[in-house]
Design a protein around this nucleic acid. Structure first.
Length: 141
DNA sequence: GCCAACGTTGGC
DNA sequence: GCCAACGTTGGC
């Protein structure tokens, strides 16, 4: 059981769209970065991830669950890139802004390298961000 | 719109 | 295998 953070431009794939996909979830496509691909390949079914919006919002807004482990990304003709399937599990009652994370969790990958689109999150970071987001109890896997 | 940071590419 | 040049991302 591990924790992650996935990042998306809301114009391309938003939290609202993700929630519409329901429990079955959908492919997390479009990752074209080796580090991010490596992280996705380490994901196990049941792992949880923060859903982060870049751009104007710059905040963690929800939580998704890995429902299918890494498999070839159907949007990639070369077959070199993988994706996982994720499903929305919870909203954060209060979105946690990047500025708050920088202020309180400056060692988090997101604060250090906001460009990496799929990042690992430690358990301590996970709990802290859940608390900051107004979740008394982090969702179970 | 700008710029810094990072990743990737290609020449040597 | 190194490194310079370039492109892209994303915060400000």
């Amino acid at each position: 059981m591990a924790y992650w953070l996935v990042k998306s431009e809301p114009d391309e794939w938003s939290w609202t769209q993700q929630k519409k996909e329901g429990r079955k979830g959908s492919e997390w496509t479009g990752v074209r970065n080796f580090q991010a691909r490596g992280n996705m390949r380490k994901m196990q079914r049941g792992d949880l991830a923060f859903f982060y919006h870049t751009g104007d919002e710059k905040a963690v807004i929800g939580i998704v669950k890995v429902v299918k482990e890494a498999h070839p990304d159907s949007t990639d003709p070369s077959g070199e890139w993988d994706c996982v399937d994720v499903a929305a599990v919870a909203d954060l009652p209060r979105p946690v802004a990047l500025s708050e994370i920088k202020a309180k969790l400056k060692d988090m990958a997101l604060a250090r390298n906001p460009r990496l689109s799929v990042q690992p999150v430690t358990e301590a970071e996970w709990r802290k961000v859940c608390t900051m987001g107004g979740l008394a109890k982090p969702p179970a896997a």
